[in-house]
């Protein structure tokens, strides 16, 4: 069971690197979508007895992260009529190096953390830290609003991975609330992206520099 889980987390880490290295927005959005679906499926591997509430939240996660959010992002991308990130503030090779270095550091760091025996062999903690780091690199290193949103989603995915450590303790009501907040959040971001596109005729956040001291 743990082996399958680690395989999925390995896939998520690989998708982190794919997201860091891709210059085209559609492939970035696809990476985030596949990662979200992989994460959503994990509760089925973690729980021995699947009750209908767990199944419901897991299915909702797959649906939201794998389909709803990517559709919203693709629509924003089409209305803005942009396909690729032209000049990122942190280039693709440096981003990849940062991501790879960060992943190695996350694995090394997770070994030093006090973990319960049942979590010691799993990649949950290093995968979570690596995803949070990847999210930050994308948030800082990309200038198109949609790429930054993808960075934010990968950051959220990292936090979700960490939350899986507590899957037996966290009430599902809380999980559902968090998922709802995330969906509404991306929906709101989608609206703002659309308005920024109309107001500035661009989604380049480097143009948002009127407000400063």
């Amino acid at each position: 069971m743990n082996a399958y889980l680690n395989l999925l987390i390995g896939l998520a880490i690989g998708l982190n690197l794919l997201a860091l290295g891709s210059s085209r927005l559609p492939s970035l959005i696809n990476a985030v979508a596949v990662q979200g679906m992989a994460l959503g499926a994990m509760p089925f591997l973690l729980e021995e007895h699947i009750n209908w509430m767990v199944a419901l939240v897991a299915c909702a996660t797959v649906a939201v992260k794998g389909f709803v959010i990517p559709i919203l992002l693709r629509r924003a991308m089409r209305t803005a009529n942009i396909e690729r990130e032209v000049v990122p503030s942190i280039g693709y090779v440096p981003s990849l190096l940062l991501g790879a270095g960060g992943t190695i550091a996350a694995v090394a760091f997770a070994r030093t953390l006090p973990l319960l025996p049942e979590h010691a062999g799993s990649l949950l903690v290093p995968g979570s830290l690596a995803s949070v780091l990847t999210g930050f690199v994308l948030l800082i290193g990309r200038s198109k609003a949609i790429s930054q949103v993808c960075g934010y989603l990968i950051l959220e995915n990292g936090i979700y991975l960490f939350g899986l450590l507590l899957i037996h303790a966290t009430p599902l009501l809380v999980e559902a609330g968090i998922l709802l907040d995330l969906t509404v959040g991306v929906f709101v971001i989608g609206i703002i992206v659309d308005r920024i596109q109309r107001a500035f005729d661009s989604l380049d956040t480097r143009k948002l520099t009127v407000l400063r001291e």
Binding site: A145, I189, V210
Partner: peptide, 24 residues
């Protein structure tokens, strides 16, 4: 105004990241 959308974007991005950290 366009200034208002700029402010909203910064609010969402900084506030969203911060609040994500508190979940972690």
């Amino acid at each position: 105004t366009s200034r208002a959308f700029e402010a909203t974007w910064k609010y969402l991005l900084v506030g969203g990241t911060g609040i994500a950290l508190s979940l972690l």
